[in-house]
Structures are given as structure tokens and as C-alpha cells.
Amino acid sequence: MNAMRKRLGAALAVLVALGLAAGAAMAAEGGKPPAQTWSFDGLFGTYDRAAAQRGFLVYNTVCAACHSLSLVAYRNLDGIGFKDDAIKAIAAAKEVPDGPNDQGEMFNRPGRPADRFARPFANDNAARAANNGALPPDLSLITKARKGGADYIHALMVGYKEPPTGVQMMEGMQYNAYFPGNQIAMAPPLTEGQVEYADGTKATVAQMAHDVATFLTWAAEPEMEERKRMGVKVLLFLIVLTAMLYALKRQIWTDVH
């Protein structure tokens, strides 16, 4: 294990030196995110369509400037209740690279529903160059890839604070109570009234955090509603079947006992 420890130490040193994702470089854990109430909790949970659609608006206007969502396609948006025309319009508003054409040139064209979400940067290096060396992670699986899932996303969005006295902040870092290590490269992304919700919901930071966490949970687990619906049926079937098997077992074994 000594070789491993050395390797680990070296990797950490590199991260600190480059001032990259501060979270991974810090051994300290962030605060435990408080549990929120979610529409998708529980055995019968579903995604609140209105919240998920509002969350998409927040992602599309705010997060998408830096964070890709590369595993999700525009056509998938029908899963949170967007109609075909709306999906076409959302996709068409984006430029996606395509090609080569007949002349052998790459070109940009408006997005189509079959396209995956357009990336804000051409590659990771471009993303780092534009973000003070930090790499904004892809958000497709973010709620599955962080302890606490949606609670963590919500807590992170509302967790920006003044650093406590005595905490030395690194260049360009923000203090966040829930980020591992507490120093995050992302500036506070949400401000009150930043987006205008079509349904008249007041766009407070907490509201937007809740909505975008709902949207990202859907993006990470688009199969969840089908999974839970099927699961309820499968469990009911198995419970009845097993009860009958038990009765049959009792009956067959009567002459042995």
C-alpha cells in the first residue's frame, strides 16, 4: 500500500498546485446537506413536471453556460412533459457542430431533438481556460455521483457564505458550507429573480435550487418513474406468489411433520 499512498499523495499535490477542483484536493468533508422534501421520494414518487421544467429553465439559462449535460438528448425532454414543438424549439436554439460536409468542412447547424445537449466548451482544456483552471463537471449524473444526491445539489446552491474568520481562502475560491473542503471555484450561480418563470412562481434562490435539483435528478435517472411503477407491480406479484408457495409448502410437508 505504500506505493499507493505515494501515488495518492502525489496526485493530491498536483491538484493543489494547479488549484483545480478544490473538493477532491481537500480531505475535509463538506457539511451534511439537510434533507429536503422531493416529489420523487418514496415508493410512489414521480417527478413534479412543473418543477422539473422550471429546473430545465434554470439549467438552460444559468448552468449551461459552463456545465455540459452530455448524456441527455433534447428528445428526452418529453420525459418531463415538454411537447414535441417545444423540444424542437429548444434544440433549434442551440448550435451543434456537425460535418464534414461535401467540401470536407466541419460546420455548425441548429440542434435537432435527436442531438445530445450541446456542450458549452469544445473540450476540457477550453473549459478550464475559461474557468480559472477549474473544470465544471458534466451534470448528467451529478445527483448519482454525489453523496446526498438532490439534497446535496440544493444545499450547494444555497450554501454560499462569507468564510468564517481564520479560514484562508485560495485565489478565486468561494466559501461554501456544503462543498467538500469548503472552497469551491464556482461563483454563487443563483441570484434572486435571475430567471423569469412562465408559471409565475417566484424565482427565489431556494426555489431555483429546488427546481434545478429536481431537473438534474431526472437527468440522472430518467427511468425512475417507470422503475418504481414496475417495482410496485413486481413486489405485489412476488408477495402473493410467495404466500401461495408457502401455503403449498405447508400442504406438501404435512405428512412429514
Binding site: 415508493l43 422503475r227 418504481k228 414496475m230 417495482g231 410496485v232 413486481v234 413486489l235 412476488l238 408477495i239 406468489l241 410467495t242 408457495l245 408457502y246 403449498l248 409448502k249
Partner: peptide, 16 residues
């Protein structure tokens, strides 16, 4: 019967 009982637990984790 044992398989049925086991599947209830197993499928709970798979689906939920």
C-alpha cells in the same frame, strides 16, 4: 418458497 422470499428482498433493491 425460499426463492420467492429472497426475490422480494432482491427486487426491492433493484427497483427502489
Amino acid at each position: 418458497f425460499g426463492l420467492g422470499a429472497f426475490m422480494i428482498v432482491f427486487m426491492f433493491f433493484v427497483f427502489f
